[in-house]
């Protein structure tokens, strides 16, 4: 445990250092891509738990990310003005579930409070993951990869073909998410730094929670399942139940990240749900060392940042495919071994 506290201190120093450095170099626009990278990294951290510890592969996490993003995007941009006088809307408004704001053109619209959007995102993803996981995770082997691949394709096509989700354009004009007064996730220029720190803090809290989990009885049970499913069952571990819970947890984390990034970006497009995105997350987890939260985070931050800055040009997807192949060929343990099992 002591070693992980040193990791946390290093993490904090790095966060502040990068902020000061970009500021000094006059490149504080880097913070935007770093903030986005933090949100993508949350998906990676959830996948590390699923892949590295429970030994299950999901090729549909972009789908959960999109469920999160689109849920909150739809709810926080839907216009309820025409129904303002309906009793149910008045009730919702009086309970603080709705929020009045002006859209880009100055028209007043009444939508759901982003809090409702984010909570719906997380709950919905959890329910969907549960329904997919129940039948699939009773089976031994890599059936989850196949089922989630199908799920990811379905989400992508649904998003692309449904007017409510904006089809190929996605949803824009998503308002910021005010966590509490003075602290909100949005894409405004003057809150760039605050958003960078909010995102890094959320990732840090997530890291802390997952590290605790891995070092607890639950983490030992998960590693046992990974080590030998038969023996894990024989000592009384409900292997199907544990795999299901980890899968749901990782899906919920992905949806949460998707919802937050959507509020930060002010919108979401169908590209977020593409199967290539899912493969990308898997490639990052593999490159980070599978069972390494720190390795996954570091790899994710670097690769996502470079990708978002456009360094890979039109080879963007190809780079992640190549990373996956190279890792499997030359370093199945991952390139970064620091903090393994932390």
């Amino acid at each position: 445990m002591r070693r992980s506290y040193i990791h946390i201190l290093l993490y904090l120093a790095l966060i502040v250092g990068v902020d000061l450095l970009t500021h000094a170099l006059g490149k504080s626009y880097y913070l935007t891509q770093l903030t986005m990278s933090f949100y993508y990294s949350m998906v990676v951290l959830g996948l590390v738990l699923l892949m590295g510890y429970a030994g299950q592969i999901s090729l549909g996490h972009a789908g959960f990310f999109a469920i999160g993003g689109y849920s909150t995007a739809v709810l926080s941009t839907i216009n309820l003005m025409p129904y303002k006088e309906k009793p149910i809307i008045r009730l919702l408004e009086s309970m603080g579930f709705l929020l009045m704001r002006e859209d880009l053109y100055g028209a007043r619209i009444l939508s759901f409070n982003p809090w409702i959007g984010v909570i719906t995102a997380v709950v919905l993803a959890g329910v969907v993951a549960y329904l997919i996981g129940i039948p699939v995770l009773k089976l031994k082997g890599h059936y989850l990869a196949m089922a989630t691949l199908g799920f990811g394709i379905i989400v992508y096509r649904v998003v692309l073909g449904t007017p409510v989700f904006g089809e190929a354009d996605g949803i824009s004009d998503v308002p910021g998410f005010q966590i509490f007064p003075g602290l909100s996730i949005n894409g405004e220029m003057d809150t760039k730094r605050m958003n960078y720190y909010i995102a890094s803090a959320i990732v840090l809290v997530l890291l802390y929670l997952l590290m605790n989990l891995i070092n607890s009885r639950v983490g030992r049970a998960l590693r046992a399942i990974h080590g030998s499913e038969d023996a894990a069952e024989a000592v009384g571990i409900d292997t199907a139940g544990y795999k299901l819970r980890v899968f749901v947890l990782s899906a919920v984390i992905a949806a949460f990240a998707g919802a937050l990034l959507t509020h930060f970006n002010g919108g979401i497009g169908p590209g977020e749900s593409s199967v290539m995105k899912s493969v990308r997350y898997v490639a990052i987890v593999a490159a980070g060392g599978m069972a390494s939260l720190w390795g996954g985070l570091a790899t994710s931050m670097v690769l996502n940042f470079l990708s978002l800055r456009g360094y890979f040009g039109s080879y963007d997807d190809a780079v992640f495919g190549a990373v996956l192949i190279l890792i499997m060929l030359f370093a199945p343990e991952g390139i970064i071994k620091i903090g393994r099992r932390q």
């Binding site: 046992a224 990974h226 080590g227």
Partner: peptide, 8 residues
């Protein structure tokens, strides 16, 4: 067949 948890 010995069935220990590898990696632990």
């Amino acid at each position: 067949q010995i069935n220990l948890f590898h990696g632990m």
